[in-house]
Design a protein around this nucleic acid. Structure first.
Lengths: 248, 248
DNA sequence: GGATTGTCGGTTGTTGGACAACCCGACATG
DNA sequence: CATGTCGGGTTGTCCAACAACCGACAATCC
């Protein structure tokens, strides 16, 4: 681990200067968001933008390419670059989570999504999907026995739920959220969670599996809720989620 | 409004040839996904890639820039381009929806997300947020009276719910999904939905508002479910969603 | 010897110029 | 009127060069 020269704390580590195409893409996106060139309207030519920004055409091209890949603009060779008819972003981004506040919010979103997925899985699972769920459950049990790493089996369990919901978007979004959180947690407390991998989750997982096996959506929702809330607590995060029947 | 020449329906609109940086970015992403350069490992230099692909360095740079913005690779000047320590995508993408199948799946995801948001809003809304919700409700009523366009007020209503959940990620994702669906629907049946804007939704919206006002998460969930299911039916989409108490 | 500093090769960041591919409108031609 | 041709303008691609930066090694100094 290279120690950043923090010996003399009066010199703050200077953050990487924003790269040129980054800045230009950002400013163009701001303009478009403000509706400056109306949707469908044409942007200035690359040469004009380059001149106006005082940079080379390649830089402008890189910026436009990024906007293009985000679906904000479309270019047609020989004609120009146009603001997309519907300049709504094609992607939902989650930047690396820093504050615990953010982590808690994302976890909350994930909680609800996984609850929904489990309910769908309980309704629509095929026998094969149930088999995969049970296989992941057994793999986790083995991991606890042999003191080995249980994380792969755990993620496989969650993926199996996502798969059993039989909705590709649901599945992709669950995988995305899980992945995004996994990395943030791994960065925050490096591997400490993996060490004290707790067999407490065993019962929670089993309850989810049973509810899905028994085709009981409500029970599946509640089982996932309990599982993720205690998982969060094991990570030191307090999630304010009431059982759904509390209001009755 | 340029009418896309659909006079002769036998000629399908031919899609734009995949651009060079697109293809290279895709192939690089595939390689990385297969773990070819291990996470943290270095990619070949831009010059080498340019030579190997038989293209210019600019094209390779554009491709790498895209991967960089997706969080798959990181570049450091003077050092090279590296596969990100965790090459998980930073963004969840939804391409323009073509098949009705896709639209139904996305709508299902949105249904569950909005149900969760409504439940959260019922628990956590502030008085100001409730005011905004009621204002949107009244705006919709006015729109029905004056036969004017009710869509802006409707989206504002949904945004108000998203805001009242008091979770920025939840809010952003809801807005993203709504926006994404709106465009797809607009493309599919151009503005026909806007014309027969139905005052039937009035009661459904009011029910949601009341549940959130009364701090009843369960009722809020159910009200949103009813609203989105009938909204889908009005669009000709059959959504298989049971009331959550059905299993009891 | 050990620490600091200068130098060098390699890589990305940026620039400028050039040409090809393409679109559109205007014009000529029959 | 239909068609072909041309020219201007724009994006797509290529090339060559320099600047900024990094790592490693040699040179220097104590």
């Amino acid at each position: 681990m290279p120690t950043p020269l923090n010996d003399s704390p009066c010199f703050a580590v200077l953050s990487r200067r924003e790269t040129l195409p980054d800045e230009i893409a950002r400013r163009l996106a701001d303009e478009i968001g403000a509706g400056r060139p109306a949707p469908g309207g044409r942007l200035p030519t690359e040469a004009a933008l380059a001149g106006s920004f005082g940079v080379s055409r390649n830089v402008v091209r890189e910026a436009i390419a990024r906007l293009k890949s985000e679906g904000l603009v479309e270019t047609r060779q020989g004609l120009g670059a146009f603001v997309a008819a519907d300049p709504s972003p094609r992607a939902f981004r989650i930047e690396p989570l820093g504050a615990e506040e953010d982590l808690r919010h994302v976890l909350e979103l994930r909680l609800h999504v996984e609850m929904g997925a489990a309910a769908l899985a309980a309704e629509r699972r095929t026998p094969e999907q149930l088999d995969r769920l049970r296989a992941a459950l057994q793999a986790m049990a083995r991991a606890v026995e042999t003191q080995s790493d249980g994380v792969p089996a755990d993620t496989d369990f969650h993926h199996a739920i996502a798969e059993a919901a039989n909705n590709p978007y649901y599945r992709d979004f669950m995988v995305f959220l899980a992945e995004r959180m996994r990395t943030s947690i791994a960065v925050a407390r490096s591997n400490s969670a993996r060490l004290r991998w707790s067999p407490l989750a065993e019962d929670e997982h089993a309850a989810i599996c049973e509810a899905i096996a028994g085709r009981d959506p409500t029970a599946a929702r509640e089982a996932v809720r309990r599982h993720l809330v205690s998982a969060a607590r094991r990570l030191g995060l307090a999630l304010s989620s009431q059982p759904e029947d509390a209001a009755r």
